Simulated assay, not measured.
Amino acid sequence: MARMKFICDAERCIECNGCVTACKNEHEVPWGVNRRRVVTINDGVPGERSISVACMHCSDAPCMAVCPVQCFYRTEEGVVLHDKDICIGCGYCSYACPFGAPQFPGQGTFGVRGKMDKCTFCAGGPEPNGSQAEFEKYGRNRLAEGKLPACAEMCSTKALLAGDGDVIADIFRTRVLQRGKGAEVWGWGTAYGTQSKAGA
């Protein structure tokens, strides 16, 4: 079974926020929550790069490890989802996540928090696929419709890749080889080691 993953090509991201807008529009994300956001590193100086960030659906997800009520679960495709009916809004997951993916919408006065919300990889939730209850809690289930996440489909430069982890890693690797930069590409050393030649 394919493991679904995101990869953002920082060499292609133009910080247009199309991915952010597509996500909010597709799922009617509550006010105060951004399931996806664009982060710019070295803003305004040489070497500036932007990258689209959301839940990375980790293989060893820290949010799952710290949740006291075990509202998180992993699908067969490797997508990390949560059950809002179980969530108690404690916030442990938001502290544990290195990507800041779990967020709590303000649902009242004095900063009262509701149930945690996060990127679902457009895979819905535990309710029946395509049901109104699923949409109201988690947004549209595009994976069940055979589609990729809206953020990746909306990306005008195809910087944001989503799908089978092996397939999108091959796409990214091919791009880097065609650029002829190898280890000079931002993030390459973290992903593939420090060798200067990709095939070496």
Rank of each mutant, 00 (worst) to 15 (best):
A198K: 04
M154A: 15
V80Q: 11
M1Y: 03
R3K: 13
A150T: 09
C119F: 03
A96G: 07
A162L: 10
C63A: 00
G100P: 01
P128E: 11
N34K: 06
L81Y: 07
G130K: 12
N141V: 08
G163E: 06
K197L: 01
M4H: 14
P102E: 02
A183W: 03
E136H: 02
I41L: 15
A10F: 09
P149F: 04
R3L: 07
C122R: 06
G108C: 11
H57Y: 13
K84H: 02
G199W: 11
I41D: 14
V33T: 06
R35W: 13
P46A: 13
R12N: 07
A150N: 10
A144E: 09
Y192G: 01
F172N: 14
S196N: 00
F135E: 05
G32H: 14
V39I: 15
S196R: 01
P126L: 08
A61C: 09
T190N: 09
S94W: 03
E153P: 05
D170L: 15
E48R: 02
K115A: 08
R12H: 04
T190K: 11
D117E: 01
G100R: 01
V185A: 13
G91I: 00
C55N: 05
C58P: 04
R74F: 00
P68A: 12
E28Y: 07
G199S: 07
R3M: 00
G108H: 15
E26A: 08
E48Y: 07
N129V: 11
P68W: 12
P105V: 06
I86H: 08
N25H: 11
R142A: 06
R175Q: 12
K24I: 10
M116F: 00
A150M: 13
G78W: 12
T109R: 15
A96E: 01
G44S: 00
I88K: 12
E15G: 10
V29I: 15
C55P: 02
M116G: 04
V29S: 08
K5G: 13
E77R: 15
N141L: 05
E77Y: 15
C58L: 02
K5N: 12
T157Q: 06
P98S: 03
G163Y: 02
A123E: 00
I7E: 13
V33A: 04
R74L: 10
K147S: 07
N17F: 14
V29F: 06
M1P: 11
